[in-house]
Amino acid sequence: MSLWEYANPRKFMALSGKLLPWTAVGAALLCCVGLIWGFFFTPDDFRMGSTVKIIYIHVPSAMMAINVWVMMLVTSLIWLIRRHHVSALAAKAAAPIGMVMTLVALATGAIWGNPMWGTYWAWDPRLTSFLILFLFYLGYMALWEAVEDKDTAADLTSVMCLVGSVFALLSRYATRFWNQGLHQGTSVPVATGERTVDDVFFIPLAISMVGFAVLFVALVLLRTRTEVRARRLAVLNARERMSA
């Protein structure tokens, strides 16, 4: 059996219908455990005080803001190369999730920054690239709505996704490219494993990060199913109009 078989809307609907309840329950459990543990049962940091509790939302949302765009990049490439409609619809379905995650990361970062840096905003490389990524999300969603022909919209948004990927990567690696920014480097480097966060903070943070990732999977399945149904409804309505 090939993975491409799931590009068939009927097969996708059958599989996603089975996966959705499990991912939704998993996301609810993991997010609740991670956030409640982080908020209520972790100590204050000796420098940051209780603002350290913001990381249990800020870090997972920032991680997802970038990863959602990477997922959109992959599905956009699949659309451009293989013309599978489900992949284009999955990218469309993921964009509002990524936009909200980027907004959450920006808002929580600003709220944390005010007491810690003395300002809500600085034109720091990572903050600026995140703001541009947020604007790309808005532009991507607006482009889908602006073009009437859905295949043309999928083509144009896929190209826009390729361009925006530069800023998604800049957001991820900005603290390595430029050293003059306020934002610190990553505290949980996946590649080296040399994290600078103590277990008392890291364990609920890791649970929250996994929870946000599973929440994204649940939401993207739900929203892609909605997009597939919307496309089918549009086809039925068009057929009715032609036969009337």
Binding site: G49, L103, T108, L215
Partner: peptide, 26 residues
């Protein structure tokens, strides 16, 4: 939450509001 209580609570309220709003709309 000490002297940063307002900041922490505000961050959680805004974030949960946005995420729950997205889930509800979806």
């Amino acid at each position: 939450l000490g002297k940063y209580a307002a900041d922490v609570v505000l961050a959680y309220c805004i974030s949960l509001g946005l995420i729950l709003g997205l889930i509800g709309l979806s």
